[in-house]
Nucleic acid binder design. Structure first.
Lengths: 200, 200
DNA sequence: CGATATAGTGAACAACGTGTCCAGTAATAC
DNA sequence: GTATTACTGGACACGTTGTTCACTATATCG
């Protein structure tokens, strides 16, 4: 289990932290957010979870942090390392999964809010980087390096740059909203970048 | 002059709007923001401009809107349509200008804040889209279409997609902060995309 | 058992920013 | 002068944050 709010489970003196309350809080945050389309307040989360506000502030620094942890537990989407798929298809699938997540579910709206929050609050930025962006980034980089190893991808390729260029347009259009996220965005971007990536 | 807050200048009955106060407000907003690195409050702007808070709310819906207009007047950077430059160089130069703006000046920090605000407030989003993103986007698209006309760029190219893919990585790294904005980012991204864009 | 340590409660509190209201004053066109 | 609009400054209610405090609850350890 990927605990964001650290919790040593060594037996210590004193009343132990209530796991029941912890999950109640995280579920409350996620439910409120998915229902309202925005980051709930500490007050609302506490009320819904049937918990004192003080308890919230004890374990999390901000509502955005609570929500992020709550969403991660709800979606708990394992990022796939489908090493059987050809590199290009694996990358496209990954970007495509992101695009559809941002488009179809209300997760897109919430991710926008969380990105806004991460600009304001350092805690949120760190948590999002660690638990949201980096896993996806590393998975993509992994596929690219796999491609280099198998000779499909040009050696010396800047895997970080390529990865960012693949993912960036989706977030870019999500944030600015000047163009809808199309079904074929992933394929289009991959097609655009691939000639520079593939070995000639 | 690019007026964001609309102002009919037809002679109307009644006391005319004070241009002195308007510029004082915009300058105050820009100064406070550049000094503090964040979006100032309506209160702070009013105080610094020596103006009533009521006046602010009369002409602008939020502090972010005031700041945006103030920054646009301060930087008033005209986006260049250097049609003499080769298409690839023109595009690179444009992306490069953005990267350096985000890196060097404190504008990067402020643009982050404004993007966050634009996620929360519709007014800000609309204003940023119209006065910040679209001009740059259209300039890039213009160069691409110029390229198509002169035969340098592959006909049928999705100019919008290419433009977004060129600009997106800079914003992407600015927001997430997982990688520094390098001096050569513009050139790297252009090089990555160009093979798919240029005629064979 | 008692001592100690930690978790959780509920209420209160100050601080801050927002957005609106209102009575009064100022400047312009007709 | 009259109508019309701009600006002032103070007040207000509202919501959210983050902290404090006395109190209760539940665990470990000797």
């Amino acid at each position: 289990m990927n605990n964001v709010s650290s919790n040593t489970d060594t037996a210590r003196p004193g009343r132990p932290r209530s796991e029941r309350r912890r999950t109640a809080i995280l579920e409350a945050a996620a439910e409120l957010a998915l229902a309202g389309g925005s980051i709930p307040t500490m007050d609302a989360i506490a009320a819904r979870a049937g918990v004192s506000r003080t308890t919230l502030y004890k374990w999390w620094p901000s509502a955005a942090t609570v929500l992020l942890e709550g969403l991660l537990e709800h979606f708990h989407e394992s990022i796939e390392f489908d090493d059987d798929l050809p590199v290009r298809e694996a990358l496209t699938a990954q970007v495509d999964a992101l695009v559809h997540l941002l488009r179809d579910t209300s997760a897109g709206m919430l991710l926008r809010q969380l990105m806004a929050a991460s600009i304001t609050e350092r805690d949120v930025a760190a948590a999002m980087l660690e638990h949201w962006l980096e896993p996806r980034r590393l998975a993509a980089i992994h596929h690219l390096e796999r491609g280099i190893a198998t000779g499909v991808v040009r050696p010396g390729t800047d895997t970080g740059l390529v990865t960012d260029t693949l993912f960036a347009p989706a977030y870019y259009r999500l944030i600015w909203g000047h163009t809808e996220l199309g079904d074929d965005l992933a394929e289009q971007v991959c097609a655009l970048v691939w000639p520079s990536v593939a070995t000639p």
